[in-house]
Nucleic acid binder design. Structure first.
Length: 238
DNA sequence: AAAATTAGCAACCGCAGTCAA
DNA sequence: TTTGACTGCGGTTGCTAATTT
């Protein structure tokens, strides 16, 4: 049965009910998450294919982690956002248990605010610590970007342009933003991070592990000096 | 206690990319 | 080469719960 042309008139919107979820989940379990157009047609759900896909991708897909973001996850999101901009899908690929929608919502409702506080707190610290705080988060982000560019000139592997879905790179060259290269940069950052407990994609990690270390760990070229890091931790904890 | 405001989040919308016919 | 179907993405909206006045 094809989805009728008048489907827009009967399509249901708004929150999904548990019953609809069960129907969707059992259908996907049987047929796999593809051919979304067939889902409403074959299940009788009064939802458009898009809505079914979104519901599955963001809420019903196995392995999705819901609930509070850990401190470590937040830091990773902040760093990736600084590097990539609002490319939520790319950022989400580095937090496999989180969806892009979840990350985007968390950024818009929590992290932006926290970063704003961090910025203000930074200027306060600058006065208190007699200039030690001149490395505010914004500057750190700038440094990260510079380090990124420098690292590229030191031989980060270009990705095949066809695989790079980045349409709006924050800085050039555009090939910089491949998954592999981002993983390398993250690895550099994580080496400086105390907990090192972020679950990055295991394949990416293997790939990154097999590559020579890049000179990204020096204070001059990587993100946060101890003071900035501590202040950031304070803000994120609150 | 009630009304107003704010915050958080699920879901929708529109656009762009991909691919097959 | 063109066209249409499908999919993915990011921005935005709107509902609900929590908080403030």
């Amino acid at each position: 049965m094809d989805w009728p042309p008048w489907c827009d008139k009967i399509v249901k919107k708004g929150p999904w009910t548990p019953e609809e979820d069960i129907v969707l989940a059992s259908y996907i379990q049987e047929h796999g998450p593809r051919n979304w157009r067939s889902v409403p047609a074959n299940t009788g759900l009064l939802r458009c294919s898009k809505s079914c896909r979104l519901r599955w991708t963001n809420y019903r897909r196995p392995g999705i982690k819901r609930g509070n973001f850990t401190h470590q996850e937040e830091k990773l999101i902040i760093h990736l956002q600084a590097l990539l901009g609002n490319r939520w899908a790319t950022i989400a690929s580095h937090l496999p248990q989180r969806t892009d929608n979840d990350i985007k919502n968390h950024w818009n409702t929590h992290l932006k605010k926290k970063l704003s506080n961090l910025h203000n707190y930074g200027y306060h610290q600058a006065i208190v610590a007699k200039g030690q705080w001149e490395k505010t988060l914004q500057r750190d982000v700038h440094l990260a970007k510079r380090a990124f560019s420098e690292a590229l000139s030191l031989g980060l592997k270009p990705s095949s342009s066809a695989q790079c879905s980045c349409t709006k790179p924050p800085f050039s060259p555009s090939y910089a933003l491949s998954t592999e290269n981002i993983s390398r940069l993250l690895q550099g950052w994580m080496k400086n991070d105390s907990s090192k407990s972020v679950a990055i994609n295991q394949d990416e990690k293997k790939s990154a592990d097999s590559l020579p270390q890049l000179p990204l760990q020096s204070p001059e070229t990587w993100l946060l000096d101890e003071i900035a890091e501590e202040a950031m931790n304070d803000i994120l904890r609150n």
